[in-house]
Computed example of a mutant assay.
Amino acid sequence: MSQIIEHLSEISDRYEALFVDLWGCVHNGITAYPEAVAALQAYRKRGGIVVLLTNAPRSRHEVAKQLDRFGCPEDTWDNIATSGDSARTAMFTGAVGNKVYFIGTEFDLPFFEPLKLIENPVEIERVALEDAEGIVCCGPFNAHDDPDTLRPQFLYAKQKGLKLLCANPDIVVDRGETREWCAGALAQLYTEMGGESLYFGKPHSPIYDLARRRLSEIKPGIPDSAILAVGDGVKTDIAGAMGEDIDSLFISGGLAAAPTRTDRQPDPEALEMYLAEEASSPTYSIGYLR
């Protein structure tokens, strides 16, 4: 059974670095959680390194701006690895061709800004679906619409053999008290329909490779055994950590607050039942990051 702890400080001395999820752990899509910010600041003051590891379909620079708006100070973290950066790298190296059908909002358009780290990048053109060589999905056109509304487009795309690049594997997030669909829900539907979806965020390996590179920019040579992954998604954060053989801290008060009956802490029996149903084995669990 996952060990329930009261505070990050109980176990943090065992780890040189943290890979920390954002939405549901550090902020709620509107504002930062003060206790989470304080816990990460304290960890860094003791010499620990914090790499924020997020499935946001944006660059680390855009995420940093967002964190500032949410009231998360720069001394909370050392570096950022995003699903967006990992997916953009794939897009600009031709993973879905150069003519792409874009699913997302105007807010997601920075995804197409040039990526300076790639030599001779593919020139990307956004086109209508009938002219596309592939699909780039940063999220739904409307976060409150059922993913099934795109079934007709996906049927056509599957028949054309188009690959879908998923910039955010999350299925849902909670923005304050409102649950919203993410790109992962659309990619899941496309795959279920027989299409091919390409993933680059948690729980898939590319974003962990990126996170290790971002960690090595701060301090090279830290082994996986000295890294703790923190997150509220058993199918993303915890599954990814388990796949990479990295210890994990499950934040039960995020996406799983209801089934784990989390108030300040999860109900032990509810937590055990939930993790068993999800076939998930986080090393530790806590109600909220603090």
Rank of each mutant, 00 (worst) to 15 (best):
L129W: 15
N120L: 14
L164T: 05
Q66V: 11
L67E: 04
T105R: 13
R88H: 02
L165S: 05
S59I: 01
R88F: 01
P73S: 12
L67S: 02
A157G: 02
R151N: 09
K158Y: 04
P110E: 11
C166T: 14
F154C: 03
A64R: 11
P114E: 08
T93Y: 10
F141T: 01
A87F: 03
Y101N: 04
L155S: 13
A90F: 09
D148M: 14
D78E: 08
F107G: 08
P114L: 10
F107H: 08
D108V: 02
Q66G: 07
D75C: 06
L150T: 02
S86V: 01
H144L: 15
R151M: 14
S83K: 05
D131I: 13
G84V: 03
E106T: 06
R69H: 09
L67F: 03
K65L: 02
D145V: 02
H61S: 08
F141Q: 14
D146Q: 15
C166K: 09
L162R: 08
A128F: 09
W77S: 07
L67W: 01
K116H: 11
V100P: 01
Q66P: 13
T105S: 07
D131W: 12
E133Q: 05
L109P: 06
A95D: 06
D148A: 13
A90Q: 05
W77G: 03
G104H: 03
V96H: 06
R60V: 00
K116S: 15
T76E: 08
M91D: 04
V122Q: 09
A87Y: 05
G94T: 06
T105W: 05
M91C: 05
G139K: 11
L155G: 09
I135T: 01
G97C: 11
N79Y: 12
A90H: 08
Y156H: 12
A167T: 12
I103R: 00
F92I: 10
I103W: 00
F141Y: 15
E106N: 06
F102V: 09
G71L: 03
E74N: 07
P73Y: 12
M91R: 04
F111H: 02
C72L: 14
N142R: 15
A143H: 15
A132R: 09
L129Y: 06
H144A: 08
G94N: 14
R60W: 09
G94E: 06
F107M: 03
L109C: 08
E106W: 04
R88M: 00
P147D: 07
F107L: 01
A90K: 09
L165I: 10
T89M: 10
H144K: 09
W77V: 03
N142Y: 13
S83I: 02
A81T: 00
P114V: 06
M91P: 03
C166G: 15
A64Y: 14
Y156Q: 14
T82D: 03
E74M: 01
V127A: 07
G134S: 00
S83A: 11
F102C: 06
G84P: 09
E106D: 05
L109H: 13
I80T: 10
V136G: 01
T93V: 07
P73C: 05
D148Q: 11
D68Y: 02
D131K: 10
L164I: 10
G139S: 13
E62D: 11
N168V: 04
E130F: 13
A90L: 11
E74H: 05
Y156L: 10
Q159F: 12
A167V: 06
